[in-house]
Amino acid sequence: MAFKIPTFAQVKKTIVQEIQSLTGLTIHDDHDAAIRADGTASVVDGLYSHQSYIQKQLFIATADEPFLYIHAAELGLPRLGGTLASGTVTALSNVEITLTSGSKLTDGKSHYWMVATDTTINANTPTLVNVVAEQIGVSWNANGSLYWLNPKAGLSSTVTDVSIGGGSDQEELEVWRARLLERKQLGLSRDREADLIGFMKGVAGVKHIYVYPKRRGLGSLDVAITAVGNPPTLPSSALIASAQLALNEYAGFWADCRVYSPTEQLVNVKAVITGAGVNLTEVRQVIRDYFAELAPAAPYQHAILSARIVDLANVSDVALTPAANVIPTVTWEHTKWLRLGTLEVSNPS
């Protein structure tokens, strides 16, 4: 049973009772003995509070942020900082030009990306350009179109086929606390799958880890990873490289290790919603959320998605396409990952 800390009033009452027992005096609130009892009880109450504070910091589950750094140092599990987003864009020019390293792109919303290396663009030839975010953070992951700042003569001001990912913010406090608790509960590393997953979570930018032992035969250990994002995204080559270094450090001496990216398998979804006053935007969000939750190799289940949609207000029925479950392919070459392709939501015509 936990020790019950007395309140200030209870401490004061105990002191007053002791004085009365020793002196036989009748003590009222305005008496000198009662005032002295107030002061003593305040000190005792402060000591109890201090002991409660110390107890709180002793355990990972309750420690305040500054003390989590002490626990992290003991466990060798520092808080993850953010990572820079990186990727490629397709640039087009009607004359041959050289884009110098540091040339900037923007989305017009105070986010900027820089060209990573000098790149020559031939006339009328779409060219992939490697870019990196100017600042750390998940907000610098991008797709769609971006715009050059002060483009050179002949260079199209808009870039297309934007694929920039891998950016992440500093690890959230409670996510870090959960990692610390997990490491504490696992104890000494014993080369279990949970140990490996816990270790790989220490790579900045990694969201999910899926372990496939003997995927390429005896002695092999393959790990599929996804990148931080909302929803999670495919990892960049830089993230795969840093995760590979971490995996080699952890298990390279006893296994043929490989970090790889899942392969996207797009699922085009069409939903015809029956019901009066249905908010189709909510339906779209439910479908996006469902696909965002799917892990690599996890199947699309028609019944589950249908049930989530029917559970929305005013929805009486839904006709979903695909109308059957979709099972992603998993072989030694590919681990397919079901992602949402085109989405069409409508009412019956």
Rank of each mutant, 00 (worst) to 15 (best):
F3T: 15
I5K: 07
A9Q: 11
K12L: 01
Q17R: 13
L25V: 05
T26Q: 02
A34R: 10
G39R: 10
A41W: 01
Y48E: 00
H50P: 00
S52H: 13
Y53A: 13
L58C: 02
A61S: 14
A73V: 12
R79Y: 11
L80G: 05
S86Q: 01
T88E: 00
T98E: 04
S101H: 07
G102I: 01
S103W: 06
H111L: 07
A116N: 07
D118T: 05
N122C: 01
N124T: 06
N124R: 13
L128G: 13
V132K: 15
I136F: 15
I136Q: 10
I136W: 14
Y147V: 10
G154C: 09
V159K: 07
V162L: 07
W176V: 13
Q185K: 12
L186G: 10
E193P: 02
L196A: 09
V206Y: 04
I209D: 00
Y212E: 06
K214M: 14
D222E: 14
I225W: 05
G229P: 01
N230R: 11
T233C: 00
L239S: 00
I240Q: 15
S242G: 12
L247D: 03
G252K: 12
C257S: 12
V269S: 12
V269R: 10
K270W: 09
F291T: 03
A292W: 03
A297R: 08
A303E: 10
L305W: 11
A307Y: 02
R308M: 15
V310N: 09
V315K: 12
A323Y: 15
P328V: 14
T331N: 08
W337G: 00
L338N: 04
L340W: 05
L340S: 04
L340A: 06
G341L: 06
G341S: 07
N347R: 05
N347I: 04
